[in-house]
Design a binder for these strands. Structure first.
Lengths: 145, 145
DNA sequence: CCTTGCCCTAAAGTATGGTTTAGGGTTTAT
DNA sequence: ATAAACCCTAAACCATACTTTAGGGCAAGG
């Protein structure tokens, strides 16, 4: 009925070593042990682990995930704290997503330049401008392949 | 006319130590030195540095950014290679953005639960289910705060 | 009984991306 | 000519997140 660490690794895509690392880091205090000292994961544990993976995927640090899990373990009275923690994290993630989108837009601009019919000419011009910029400042020109 | 490392740090928001680290890592082969051995950044250098920051912001590894810069330094003939490199990176970034969006949606689902009027009841029920899941498997129940 | 395939811990090692420290020149204003 | 404010390198150090290694126990089949 309970899952072995290997089974959970396959179900989640996490390495066995990662699961043990998370456990040691305090992320899996809810995982029980069988009579041999082996970890025994229940379906409920998988649900919590899934939440941990979501937090990890969105860039939350181990220490902060641990804080969230501690609140969960402390019982229903910590609901407000969990909400605050997740809401704050949400804002961080959204901001980072926007920053990435902005940088990606600039990369797309370059890609569009490279894809244009006169890409060659544009790249050559960039090159000429960078060279001129060096000469103008009386500096050695590294753009002389 | 050229910018000192401190000026560039302020303009870009990068730490001076980070700029030196990038230089040592081969990301800034285009930055010249003045007669005292001080780095002298031109406006063209800032443009290239900006591209580097975009790649960094989107999660590109230093080693891959260096590869891109190497192509730039090698001249206009490498335009096709640069395009391929950026296009491949773009796909990686878009995929990661989507994965983050999926995880964020799950976090939002939890937030919505915490925000509902009967949040208390829902959290208590979650708690009860997790406990039952342990008992069902004859395992010690850690949810007993 | 013993091999095979699981499981365990503790500790060391790896990868990445920086930051800090130590020691030392340069430039500028007083 | 000296202090303050810059700049430099090399190398050590740090944080984060894992992975690998070493040594060993448990369980089932032949």
């Amino acid at each position: 009925m309970a899952y072995s660490i290997q089974t959970v690794a396959k179900k989640t895509g996490l390495a066995i070593s990662t699961l043990r690392f998370y456990d040691k880091a305090g992320l899996l205090p809810f995982v029980a042990r069988d009579s041999s000292g082996y970890r025994a994961f229940t379906d409920g544990d998988l649900a919590l682990l899934h939440t941990i993976v979501c937090l990890k995927n969105t860039g939350m640090k181990i220490a902060d995930i641990r804080r969230y899990i501690e609140l969960v373990m402390a019982g229903p009275t910590t609901a407000k704290d969990r909400q605050a923690l997740l809401a704050a994290h949400r804002e961080v993630v959204v901001a980072k997503q926007q920053e990435i989108a902005r940088s990606l837009a600039e990369i797309d601009y370059k890609l569009q330049m490279y894809a244009s019919p006169d890409a060659e000419a544009k790249v050559a011009q960039e090159w000429a401008l960078a060279s001129a910029d060096k000469e103008k400042n009386g500096l050695p020109n590294p753009f002389t392949a």
